[in-house]
Design a protein around this nucleic acid. Structure first.
Lengths: 290, 290
DNA sequence: TCGGCCATGAAACATTTGTTGCACGATTTG
DNA sequence: CAAATCGTGCAACAAATGTTTCATGGCCGA
């Protein structure tokens, strides 16, 4: 059942790609990677650049269900056609229902989130980063959906501060880690309404241990923001939909990591390079090829 | 006066327009108003649509200083070519210093990310959500920084599809899960450049198992996007800073979950309520108080 | 090992492309 | 008023485009 999602010619191409002969795969990849040239330049031109036979393009088009290269190109051209600026009257009406209410929902969501990002107060982020820069040890805590933010922050910070950063509860019960917090260390807690007990406990533990606390939250009245040295605010409820949005929190986390890295100067850069070299040596990544 | 700013062929055209013969003015205006078609369709096609003589296009091109229509079109094509992703050497330069370079950095970052969100192609998200809606089982895979996206998606989907969603490698080696993938199931892989081998392996396993594949990636040429039934694109390199941005990927993940939930109708709502009730019973949340 | 099949590149094909020469009418100039 | 000039459409042209055919070479099954 269910259509194979032939939304764009490019997706049709991708779907069919693995089952094609090798040469057609090459050509197909080339088209996917250079679809702009595919729509503007001639088949023979493309063949010359791609180092392939012109006929391969025709065969590719037929292989994925078009009558020929011309038809494939026409489809690519239409798919690429710039969206008209919405006539405003059209956008207002018919929201919510209709055949593609989904698309409207997502569009609204993205717009709302995009609008929310510039409203994030920036100076506290820079200040918090300076605190992180001086820290000997950094604990990060986030629960439920905020766990994703915590892990991203943990990951990025560890790229250039490997031994000094860790997630609360990563290697055992939270309480073990909470007991290990020392004065002068830093605890970052991420959370928004409704707040989990666990995150509040971390915040309290930090306070009791004499550690500095950075709260990434949706409100200054959030329980984990009480007594925090830095509160970084984002708008969780800014976008439509049923779940609060984490886009702002992610943006903050990334900014925090970026500024902290930049404060680290050459030392941080060096450590990042080491980490990357290690990953490359372990062949974590797919090597580049054209 | 100096040169009249011949930045783009279109402005050259506009400048020369008033001094041209009437018919050429018409054609010139048509080209200016339909420059996308001018780059993609043939001269004769355009002439038919514009209701003009094909020769007029050649004459127009010569009148504004080009050797012929081909050269004008080439210029228009280049002017329209989508911006490349920053070549990395350029991105590093500039900014960097000054009293509050940090604040500037973050502000730029947030702005760039905000600008990137509306550029996310929405229809594929809605389509992918429909596929998810029909799925019996959903696997999610993301490695390194993309793990955070994978976990967020996993979390949100499990709120209303508890038994049907799981992260690849969550409870053992990846390979155990990869062997368990069945035809008709769905695999979601998140990744951007540089791509990890692990994510590519998951995508291949999905393909081999006959499962549907949804790729959330920064490019249609991403290895895990090959053969994917749906590719959801975001701009990882859109923002300044040293790490790619995951904001777009997070926004996509959230949108995907939101649409899938809305497709679930009352059944999904019911299950969400059950989950929330269970969490409340376990007193996960801090009770509201003012 | 043989025979059929498929993938692939080169060349020939008909079609379409951009261009140019020509004729006709309008406009300007002496 | 006549002659020259310019703007314009039409049609023929050579060049290019996309397609098809054919011969070749490799691969797999019998």
């Amino acid at each position: 059942m269910a259509e194979p999602a032939k939304s764009s010619p490019l997706s049709e191409l991708r779907i069919a790609l693995p089952s094609l002969p090798m040469r057609l795969q090459e050509v197909g990849r080339f088209v996917a990677a250079n679809d702009y040239d595919a729509t503007t330049r001639s088949m023979r031109d493309l063949a010359a650049v791609a180092g392939a036979d012109p006929a391969a393009f025709t065969r590719l088009a037929k292989a994925i269900g078009y009558s020929g290269w011309d038809e494939l190109r026409a489809a690519l051209t239409e798919a690429r056609r710039p969206a008209q600026i919405a006539p405003f009257s059209i956008r207002a009406k018919g929201r919510r229902h209709g055949p593609n209410a989904d698309v409207t929902l997502v569009t609204d969501k993205l717009e709302a989130e995009a609008a929310g990002l510039p409203r994030i107060p920036v100076p506290p982020i820079a200040e918090a980063a300076r605190t992180l820069h001086d820290a000997k040890r950094i604990w990060i805590a986030g629960y439920r959906s905020c766990r994703s933010v915590a892990e991203l922050l943990n990951y990025e910070l560890r790229l250039f501060r490997p031994e000094q950063v860790q997630i609360v509860g990563a290697s055992g019960p939270d309480d073990l880690d909470l007991g290990a917090i020392r004065p002068g260390e830093i605890v970052i807690v991420i959370g928004f309404m409704p707040y989990t007990h666990a995150s509040v406990r971390v915040a309290q533990a930090a306070y009791r241990a004499g550690a500095k606390l950075i709260a990434i939250a949706d409100s200054v009245t959030a329980p984990m923001a009480e007594g925090a040295d830095h509160v970084l605010l984002f708008e969780a409820a800014a976008s439509p939909g049923f779940f609060p949005s984490l886009t702002g929190a992610i943006a903050i986390a990334q900014s925090l990591a970026a500024v902290t890295f930049s404060l680290g100067g050459t030392a941080a850069k060096k450590r990042l390079e080491n980490t990357e070299a290690r990953l490359a040596a372990a062949s974590t990544y797919v090597s580049e090829k054209d």
